[in-house]
Amino acid sequence: MTNIPTFDRHRRLRRTAGMRDLVRETHLHKTDLVYPMFIVEGEKVRKQVPSMPGVYQLSLDLLTEEIDELEELGIQAVILFGVPNEKDEQGTGAFIDEGIVQQATRKIKTKVPSMLVIADTCLCEYTSHGHCGVIHDHDVDNDASLELLAKTAVSQAKAGADIIAPSNMMDGFVAVIRQALDQAGFTQIPIMSYAVKYASSFYGPFRDAADSTPQFGDRKTYQMDPANRLEALREAKSDVHEGADFLIVKPALSYLDIVREMKNNFDLPIVAYNVSGEYAMVKAAAQNGWIDEQALVMEKLLSMKRAGADLIITYFAKDVAKWLVEKNR
């Protein structure tokens, strides 16, 4: 064939695996990963969450073994969710000194002091009604809830949590928690705000794992409408103004445009939460032999990094850490 016109040869940089590695723009590292853990009361409890193969509720006595595995894999951060036996209308178990997350935090920091412990700061796992705050007149009372959330954050910091991660989506939660932490002497403890948390259908398996399904109504009055983009910017702007140190977008996969909006508009670390429903769908498809799980998961998490995430909270953290080691051998 002659007289071929001049055109760009983009394929030159894709010719071999080594060439593709050389020019790759986005990379996934172990240090990008945060592993969620569900801590329960009792002894010798290792109960798999039915809708989340490979994810377990663990009792405190088995926590050391799990943390040892994470440290060996090179995972440096965990986020803790507590599942108490006893619940009440105020969510008292969230802020008592011997709460399940407080006990787990102390155990982890004693065993592996370098492990970053992020404490999820919410009431839904601890309330008898399953909502993220105090109920008045069959509705969540925003301001009354803030006082209890502040107490929870201070209790978690006293137990040794490195980062407080409020997920309740009450108005003003960052300001109130920041003030409470500062007054208690925890000025050095950062807040990883669930700044943009949508009322998503992807949370179903998590509510099985955390036993936090609302007993009435839903959370649409305090979590965001999935249709809204500008609202996400308003929410994040408020949290930054109030003192947030990280901004979480939850869920991640269907909201990569929002992850990019956060990256473009704010100079704080952006965290993508690869949620339970996203995990469960991949696991189900993999068990049926419909997908290549490793390839799909790596592509999915890379898309979150490419969209602008600095960190990823993901139930795939242990798998990804193993795959990264295999790749670099």
Rank of each mutant, 00 (worst) to 15 (best):
A17C: 08
S167W: 02
S145Q: 10
H27K: 13
N328K: 12
A159W: 01
M281S: 13
S59K: 03
L296W: 13
L33Q: 00
E299K: 08
P166C: 09
Y273K: 03
V134G: 05
C122M: 07
K327A: 14
A94D: 06
D208Q: 13
T221V: 12
T187V: 10
G18L: 14
S193L: 05
Y56G: 05
S145W: 02
C132N: 14
L13K: 11
A309G: 10
L80P: 07
L123P: 06
A195E: 08
V297E: 09
D292V: 13
W323R: 08
S114Y: 06
R9V: 15
D139T: 14
D257Q: 14
I100C: 03
M115V: 02
F216V: 05
D171E: 09
M52K: 10
A210L: 11
L33A: 02
M298W: 06
V112C: 13
T187W: 02
V320Y: 06
H10S: 15
L13P: 01
I118F: 01
K158R: 11
F7E: 15
V297W: 08
P5H: 14
S200W: 09
D218K: 14
M169E: 06
V117A: 04
S212G: 11
Y56K: 05
D32P: 07
L58K: 07
Q57W: 02
W323I: 05
H27P: 02
R15H: 07
E66R: 11
L296C: 14
V275M: 09
V23L: 09
R11V: 11
A227K: 15
V249Y: 04
R106S: 12
V174G: 05
A309S: 11
K318Y: 02
F216Q: 05
L148M: 04
E278P: 09
D61Q: 03
A272D: 00
G204W: 02
K250D: 03
N142T: 08
A157R: 03
I191L: 12
A284I: 05
Q90C: 06
K87T: 15
Q215V: 05
A295H: 12
A144D: 13
Q183N: 07
A244S: 14
Q223Y: 13
G289L: 14
H138S: 10
Y126S: 04
D137V: 07
A309T: 07
N3D: 15
I312F: 03
H131E: 14
Y279Q: 03
K220P: 06
G308C: 12
D267M: 14
V140N: 12
I291G: 12
V49M: 09
V112H: 00
K151Y: 00
P84S: 15
R20Y: 00
G74N: 10
F316W: 05
F206G: 08
E43L: 09
G99W: 04
A286F: 01
